[in-house]
Structures are given as structure tokens and as C-alpha cells.
Simulated assay, not measured.
Amino acid sequence: MYHSILVPISFDPDRDVSAPLKLAGLLATPEARITLMHVVEQVPAYAISYMPVDYLEGTRKALQAELDGLAQTLPNATGLLIDGHSGRSILDWAEQNAPDLIIIASHRPGMQDLLLGSTATQVVRHAACAVHVVR
């Protein structure tokens, strides 16, 4: 059983967030702190000029509301929205907050992942705590 669990959440349409959340609920102690994190990657400068002025702010509010809704399904869970590169930001947060476990969803690797790697791969290779990968 784990006392501090980090669950990075991807809102990609092909990813199911229910499995990592269910697993977090099963592996957490009754007083465990569960953090549901979504990392917002930076929009390239050339693309930002084509977006409405309030687009990013509206998107951030919607993402935070979604995280908060998911957090309400688990005891002692909170939603956290941060900016940065997905893999590096997850690892940096984990280094600063020392969770016992990271539960991360992954997709089946394709050719692109063989060349560039995936977020889950980066977290598994470099995290200082236990990592559970869910497919």
C-alpha cells in the first residue's frame, strides 16, 4: 500500500483514465495523498498568433475543472495542472514531492516511440520511485 501516489493524466481521446484511477484507489492506504496531474505543453509561438486571445485561459480552466472532477472520485485526491514538457515535468515534480508510486497510462509503442520515446518510457527509466504502467 502506498501513502503518496502521482497519477499523470492524459486527456487524449484514445486513452482511458478510469484504469489508472481505479488502480490508485486500490493501491492507496486510507490516508494516502493522490495527485492527479496534467502537463500542458507550450504552444509554439508560430501557432499562438492564430488562436483567440482567451483560448489558453479557457483551456486551462476546463482542464483544471476536469481534473477536479476526477479527483472527487478518489479520497484525498487533488488535481494539479502544470506547464512544461510532459516527461520532464512529471519527473521534476516527483523529485520534489517524493511520491511512493507513479501510475501512468501508456499506449502500444509505434515506430515514432522507438525513435523519440514516450512519456511513460521516460518516467519508467528515470523515476526514483515505483512506477506502474497501465495499458
Rank of each mutant, 00 (worst) to 15 (best):
S4I: 08
V7H: 10
V7N: 03
P8L: 10
I9T: 07
D12S: 12
R15M: 15
R15V: 15
V17Y: 14
L21V: 08
K22D: 07
A24M: 08
A24F: 06
L27W: 09
A28G: 02
A32H: 06
T35I: 05
T35R: 01
Q42Y: 12
P44I: 09
A45N: 11
A45T: 13
Y46L: 02
A47C: 04
I48D: 10
S49Q: 14
V53C: 13
D54Q: 14
L56I: 15
T59D: 13
R60M: 10
L63T: 14
L63P: 06
Q64L: 11
G69K: 08
A71G: 03
Q72P: 10
Q72D: 09
P75G: 09
P75E: 03
A77H: 01
A77T: 01
A77N: 07
T78H: 00
T78E: 12
T78R: 05
G79R: 06
G84F: 08
H85A: 13
S89N: 04
L91F: 07
L91P: 05
W93Y: 15
D100W: 07
D100H: 01
L101S: 05
I102H: 03
S106A: 15
P109S: 04
P109N: 03
M111P: 00
M111H: 08
Q112H: 12
D113C: 01
L116D: 03
G117Q: 04
G117E: 06
T121E: 15
Q122L: 11
Q122M: 09
V123C: 05
V123F: 01
V124H: 12
V124P: 08
A127L: 00
A128K: 11
C129W: 08
